[in-house]
């Protein structure tokens, strides 16, 4: 699988997550399609921002310089490998963030 496919796939999963969340939170009721689309987009942006932030917060400070270089290289595989090496429990870390994000809308 190419890296571009990976990015698209992650984006799709996030979109799907937001879709479900909107339905579960009952936010879709009585909303114009246009408003709903904008809402989904905003929530997706917010989710992505939070995921970005949580990843960053889990990277040790001494590794930020290295991370910056890897990030600037735009090499998606290198970035992905960096994550794997630096945050071994990435799934749990992200799960916490997804969970937290969800509880903001559904308590």
């Amino acid at each position: 699988m190419s890296q571009n496919t990976n990015v698209a796939s992650v984006k799709n999963m996030n979109e799907e997550f937001i879709e479900k969340l909107i339905v579960e939170a009952g936010m879709a009721i009585d909303l114009d399609a246009e408003v709903l689309t904008q809402l989904k987009k905003d929530m997706l942006d917010r989710l992505e921002d939070r995921i970005n932030a949580v990843i960053l917060s889990n990277i040790p400070e001494y590794k930020l310089g290295e991370f910056e270089k890897v990030l600037d290289s735009d090499d998606e595989k290198a970035i992905s490998d960096f994550y794997t090496a630096t945050i071994p429990n990435m799934a749990e870390v992200l799960a916490g963030e997804y969970l937290d994000f969800r509880t903001r809308y559904i308590a």
Partner: peptide
């Protein structure tokens, strides 16, 4: 930067969440 996370990791995280 979150988009560069391995998709399996993301899928696991969402399932877990």
């Amino acid at each position: 930067i979150g988009q560069f996370v391995n998709e399996t990791t993301v899928a696991t995280a969402i399932a877990l969440a």
